[in-house]
């Protein structure tokens, strides 16, 4: 029993995660890297659809981001400094980065 219970748990975990995160076209997941993994914060998800309803593509591309996925890194330091997401998410154009808004991006699922 103790021999295959980790395997069982792993299987259970994988299926739960797979079910919990449905694929939404255009969503970009910013995977936690290096030491970030240990703190248990969920990865940040950028939903293209939320932004596309409000802005044309060229508002952000290339002024803020390149076209190819993965060509831009987003760090909290940059965002708080008014770069990347922080260009709009500053409490003026869109909601501010605060402790009560963490889970708007850092969430396990869509």
């Amino acid at each position: 029993m103790p021999a295959f219970s980790p395997l069982l748990f792993a299987l259970l975990f994988i299926t739960t995660v797979a079910n919990a995160a449905p694929e939404v076209m255009g969503n970009i997941t910013y995977q936690r890297q290096g030491e970030q993994v240990a703190d248990g914060t969920p990865a940040a998800i950028f939903p293209h659809w939320v932004h596309r309803v409000r802005y044309k593509c060229y508002v952000c591309h290339f002024e803020i981001y390149q076209m190819q996925a993965g060509s831009d890194k987003a760090s909290m330091q940059d965002i708080i400094a008014g770069k990347s997401c922080g260009v709009c998410h500053n409490g003026k154009i869109a909601w501010n980065i605060k402790f009560d808004t963490c889970s708007r991006c850092h969430r396990a699922e869509e």
Partner: peptide, 15 residues
């Protein structure tokens, strides 16, 4: 159905 802005400033005209 959607009304995407052409800039961060809502008054900016579209290309």
């Amino acid at each position: 159905t959607i009304r995407p802005q052409a800039g961060l400033d809502p008054t900016v005209l579209a290309y």
